[in-house]
Simulated assay, not measured.
Amino acid sequence: MSNRNPKDSMKSTWRTDKSQWGIPHKILNHANVFHSDLTRPIPIHAKTDKLPHLPDWQSHRWILLHASIPLALHQIWLHFTSTPFHPIIAFIFYYQASRFFAFRQLRSMRELGHQYGYLDGDKHDRDGVPDVGVGKTLLSVFLAGFVRPVLTTWLTYTTTEEPLYSLLQHPTRVFFEIALYSIAVDFWFYIYHRLMHDVSPLWKYHRTHHLTKHPNPLLTIYADSVQEFFDIAGIPLLAWGTMKLGGFPMGFYEWHVCQLYVLFAEVAGHSGLRIHATVPNPLAEVMRWFGMDLVIEDHDLHHRNGWRRSMNYGKQTRIWDRVFGTCGERIESLEGNVDYGKKVTMPIF
């Protein structure tokens, strides 16, 4: 233990010790997107206590409502001015929209945490942002929010398309774009994620992400730089290219909404919330028939039990885990341990 690299420490004391604070600490504190409020209690449950259920439509409602606000504002601007956004303005606007979406989700999930508690909460608290990694966490979160809108704007934005017209003209196509993009993301993510666990020379790029056994959403992208590149840019590009090869247009506005669905899943998957909630996908019910739907506990168990050899490598679905035989057994989210009568409401405001 004495030979452990100090940079591997997950000790988190800085939120209550302002003597450690520099600029990154102040920025994160001002953003107020932590998984818990230090002044409020978090309920603790035995693993045999039944989980409340978040219906799929609640997640879809939350995503689509928050996604529609910037699209509607953009459409109103075009209606009254007939002046399209310059690409730089479009990037800034939709970067801020993604930032608004992420911050709202983080705060909404914090409320759920204080109401329902966290998985494995009878054994361990959620890990905080480590004292040695505050600056790294801040940079990772910034890059994740910044780079994806850059890619979307650079590759797909045109001034001739209108946001709501583009999405509502072909609703069936958009339905399948959202569903299949998530599955394409998960395919490429599964491949590279599995390789980083199974291939020894690649593990060094992934081990930092696995220092947290009980992650919180701010640690979603907490990793070495190579993994951060693939998570933030490489996987979305591969998935977008896959969709294009499959004949889907994947224009600017469709891709923007698709990426918000993926972002929601990434944050929820690292939240550890003690609720039964499926990653939102228009085809989630079909996946459920075949045991291919992903719930919050699945990725939480990947962190808790996985180091080099693990399970539950997917982060959007369990399709590829089923195909390749790497699904793990659930503990608290077992079918018989879910109270479907106790409904969870995803807070809007």
Rank of each mutant, 00 (worst) to 15 (best):
F93M: 02
S166N: 11
H256L: 13
F80K: 09
L294H: 15
A223K: 00
L65R: 10
W203Y: 14
R126L: 14
T208F: 15
K123N: 07
Q259W: 06
L151Y: 12
P280G: 02
G328E: 07
Y313Q: 08
M292P: 07
V323M: 09
E329D: 08
G241I: 00
F189I: 05
I235V: 11
F187Y: 09
Q169Y: 15
L71S: 04
G251A: 04
H214W: 11
L168W: 12
Q58P: 09
R4T: 11
S200L: 14
F146S: 10
D37Q: 13
R110S: 03
K123W: 10
H197P: 04
P282S: 04
F248Y: 14
Y313W: 10
H302S: 01
P52R: 02
K50D: 02
I44C: 08
H299T: 11
A72Y: 05
K11W: 06
L283S: 06
L301Y: 01
E335C: 00
S2P: 01
E329N: 07
H276C: 03
P236M: 12
W14R: 01
S225L: 13
K315G: 12
P347M: 01
N312P: 01
V150S: 10
G121V: 03
E162R: 13
P130I: 06
E266S: 15
W289L: 14
Q115T: 15
L71G: 02
Y165R: 14
P201T: 11
V279L: 09
H193L: 02
R4G: 08
I319Q: 02
P236S: 06
S271W: 05
H256V: 11
I235H: 07
L164K: 09
L273T: 00
G135L: 07
Y190T: 01
L263S: 10
Y94H: 08
L168M: 13
P52H: 03
W289P: 03
S333G: 00
Y95G: 00
Y313K: 02
F176V: 01
L195K: 06
M10I: 15
E332D: 06
G272M: 05
P282M: 00
F230D: 03
V279D: 05
V344H: 08
T39S: 13
L143G: 06
T152Q: 14
G145Q: 15
R126F: 06
I183V: 15
L54K: 04
D17W: 14
K213M: 14
M1R: 07
W14Q: 03
T83V: 15
R322W: 13
T158L: 07
L155M: 13
N3A: 11
T48S: 12
L112V: 04
Y340K: 12
F290M: 04
F248L: 09
R309N: 08
R304H: 10
A67Q: 04
R173I: 08
W77Y: 07
H66A: 02
N32Q: 12
L260N: 09
Q316K: 11
G121K: 09
D122M: 07
E266G: 12
V286H: 06
K136I: 13
V150P: 06
L180P: 02
T160F: 13
G22K: 15
